[in-house]
Nucleic acid binder design. Structure first.
Lengths: 239, 239
DNA sequence: GCATGTGAATAGATTCACAGCG
DNA sequence: CGCTGTGAATCTATTCACATGC
């Protein structure tokens, strides 16, 4: 398939999962991987893997598999992870802090430039070298640092305003955790994660006998990535 | 449409959004709502709303619209929100705490029975009436409280073990925030939220000129819901 | 007359199955 | 011979458009 045009959304959402899986096997000095094995590590099936990868171009070798390094490079490139992305987090509450400390962000090149809040008690606080700033510094900070992505972890009542501020300051992508509908201009991309909706969906499948499967996007096996202290020091647990 | 059998997954994922929107309009003493208006509040289009609601049964009146209270009741029921769901959170790090404080959970009947961690410094700590317990208390706690849903906010390395513990203790649904593939038995439902994947998807659409839209599930407008202190005291912001 | 409810049409994603090639 | 790459078949979701009924 031509490496050129539009990769399906569903495929885009799985690329990060393949990436994670590949980073794991790369650590174990595996140079080649079959669609079967990758599928297994990514928790999907093999035809999906092959179809997905075919959208990036024909990077495999028949009878052999895919070159791990080569694939890693091409997926990273497609995802735009060969560059650094300065981001800002608006809302320095528990969730904002959790995201700030999230190792997965840093590992993929997402660098938190600043957090913002309206709470005077929080403003000025330093979190590992990064300061919590007042909202009126948002515009200049975003502009100066060339921030393209803003993360919203505010209460829903102010989410739209915050999004507007971010867009006004020049971000072109927003990740919102606020349980609210947000409208952004055409040229801005928006993704939303709603924590309580996830539980409600589980509740639905609980209530019936049925078993509803799989959330927003796929993922891979242990290793490679790290939630940091998000999960506490659970690392010592079990075998 | 018969109110009976399988509601499409995509529809299930939107019901919580409609619910939120309806709770908002209910506050303003609106007794009836059209698919057009509800669509607007939920950030989707009207035919989707009508099709979705038709799966629940024919609860609208032609020429008029839907009765808000009636719809609220039926959606809540479908989602299993007319009952309380005791849940546990494994991993008392930043994310675990953020979820614990998440008002949206409590508002929908999800009651956190306990948090678990391996970190001795955290064990015994009380968070608003709920104690952080050691992992070896998980099994008994889950059993005794009849916990059906477990939330995993641990590092990825231990996520599978934790899931196994939860399943062993009798939960039948898991919401995982760990960036790892998790396997659960047939009868257990699983949803996954991966924070860094969301950013990577945005990065993809950034990198190209394209604008990728909309995350895991839809959502509604300001009001009704509240992220609690997740976003800090941003509530005072702006106009 | 107006907004629901729904078949039919379309679009998108997944899976199948096998030809093609190293 | 094994595994990729991909058309074709299938399944799922969205959108259209209008008959239906209050």
């Amino acid at each position: 398939m031509r490496p050129g045009r539009d990769i399906p959304e569903a495929t885009v959402a799985r690329l990060p999962v393949y990436l994670r899986a590949l980073l794991e096997v790369a650590e174990v000095k595996t140079s080649t991987i079959s669609s079967d094995r990758l599928a297994d590590l990514a928790g999907v099936n093999a035809s999906k893997v092959r179809k997905d990868l075919s959208y990036l171009g024909s990077y495999g070798t028949r009878g052999v598999g895919y070159d791990v390094e080569y694939l890693l490079y091409h997926i990273s490139r497609q995802l735009g992870l060969t560059q650094d992305w300065p981001i800002v987090i608006v809302g320095a509450g528990n969730l904002g802090r959790a995201l700030f400390n999230h190792k997965g962000f840093a590992e993929r090149g997402f660098r938190v430039v600043a957090l913002f809040d309206v709470d005077p008690a929080k403003i000025g606080e330093r979190l590992g070298g990064v300061e919590v700033l007042a909202m009126d510094e948002l515009d200049a900070t975003v502009r100066d640092a060339g921030v393209a992505i803003g993360v919203v972890t505010t209460p829903p009542q102010v989410a739209q305003e915050v999004a507007d501020l971010l867009v006004g300051a020049g971000v072109s992508a927003i990740l919102s955790f606020a349980p609210a509908v947000i409208n952004v201009p055409e040229h801005v991309s928006l993704r939303k994660v709603d924590l309580s909706i996830e539980l409600q969906i589980l509740s639905f499948y609980q209530q019936r006998g049925t078993v509803g499967l799989v959330g927003s996007a796929g993922r891979a096996r242990p290793g490679a990535d790290d939630l940091g202290d998000l999960g506490g020091a659970l690392a010592g647990l079990g075998g």
